[in-house]
Design a protein around this nucleic acid. Structure first.
Lengths: 225, 225
DNA sequence: AAAAACGCTTGATCCAGATCAATCGAAACT
DNA sequence: AGTTTCGATTGATCTGGATCAAGCGTTTTT
């Protein structure tokens, strides 16, 4: 990512590779002191914030290659929790050391700014989704997002495993579990995908993308044109 | 903010103070090349992103002291537009120069990380709001947020001018204009605030905060306990 | 192997807030 | 001063998705 090999080594030296973590393990909890950023190597992680009403808001699902904990830099304290969704390998990067390193390696500093900025863009994108999109646009956007992220990491973009529950998807998308379940059924009936428990096959990615873009739905059961 | 006076001077040297801008002026538009961050000195600015369906999503309202444009660092391109809401003074900070300066001033680098991190936290907070809160909780949260930000800058926390339209508030909060209008009327009827056109007086900030926290509403017209 | 627990699906009903429609009022323009 | 324009309010109606309520598989526990 634009670093000299020597610099990559230095970065490599401060990264701590942990043994695999298991479903339900915490990377950190809301209120913990901020020490490290976390990078998912394999598996998946969810982050969620407590709500005033006692519930939780899922903030994101993190796949291999993705960074967790950037929101804790300012206050040096985590205001969300991070839990492992399936057996995962997650690296730790002590932030103080990363910061020191970035003062001596301008391209690392630049990369850090970019990473933080990207996180902001992603959140803003999510705001647009929650602000105006309807239920099927949200689920389609979610599936396309997963698909693209898997693809970028060399996994199949059309055939994957959902490591999170329907409940967690619903929470993330601001929808009820029942709505998620009904939408999966409907998408399957319309031939957009095939779903069996947590195994998803996207059959018509193009049409899913069209749905995300708010395209007028052409219901497949329409019989009288 | 933790910088040496000499460093403040260096920072000061790269900040460009512009003449006042007027309502409707653009700081930048979606698609523009990213050159500068913007700091609101006086007045207010809104940022908004285009939606796939042709509409717009208001991403934020920016008051004096607040920074605009952090989401553009990654791609070196703005993916939202920023428009002046009322006659405002806005400074420009050329990002390349800021970045150079931050390689030589570690405390400035640290401050940059904090600013970016804070933006992420704020967006995550907004996700929680859009994910589960109902209409009155959203408007109450919006008003409390404005109140706190005005207070921090030395303005009245309970008596202020809304520089944005009801339509823009609704768009920002994921609600229809009519809902915003009805809520203002209701809040006023309940004695929480006084609203006249764009002039707001918060009469019972405590109760507004209680609403944000999802507290069970005690309707003022309840007559049979 | 039975039973408990949990996640998912499906159906029925309800409601918060959207949408539609009309009016009003302030500000900008002749 | 009158007219147009645009934002705000208010009322009536509609609806997408929440909520309530069963069942149904799977997995885990005993």
């Amino acid at each position: 990512m634009g670093l000299e090999p020597a610099d990559v080594d230095k970065l490599d030296d401060i990264v701590k590779r942990n043994r695999p973590s298991h479903r339900g393990d915490y990377l950190f909890r809301e209120g913990d002191k901020f020490q490290c950023l976390y990078i998912v190597k394999t598996g998946s992680v969810k982050t969620y914030a407590p709500r005033e009403d006692g519930g939780e808001q899922v903030l994101g699902f993190h796949l291999p290659g993705e960074l967790i904990g950037l929101d804790a830099i300012e206050k040096c304290r985590h205001h969300c929790s991070a839990r492992i969704l399936e057996t995962s390998a997650v690296c730790e990067v002590p932030f103080v050391q990363l910061e020191e390193l970035s003062t001596t390696i301008p391209s690392l500093q630049h990369q850090m700014y970019r990473l933080l900025s990207r996180e902001i863009s992603q959140d803003e994108n999510m705001l647009t989704l929650l602000g105006k999109k309807n239920a099927e646009e949200r689920l389609a956007a979610f599936l396309i997002s997963l698909s693209e992220r898997f693809k970028r990491r060399g996994f199949s973009p059309s055939d994957f495993h959902l490591s999170m529950s329907r409940h967690e998807i619903g929470n993330y998308l601001g929808l009820a579990v029942e709505t998620i379940s009904r939408l999966f059924t409907r998408f399957q009936d319309e031939g957009l995908l095939k779903v069996e428990r947590k195994h998803i096959q996207l059959l018509e990615i193009e049409r899913l993308i069209a749905i995300v873009q708010g395209e007028e739905r052409t219901s497949s059961q329409r019989t009288f044109p």
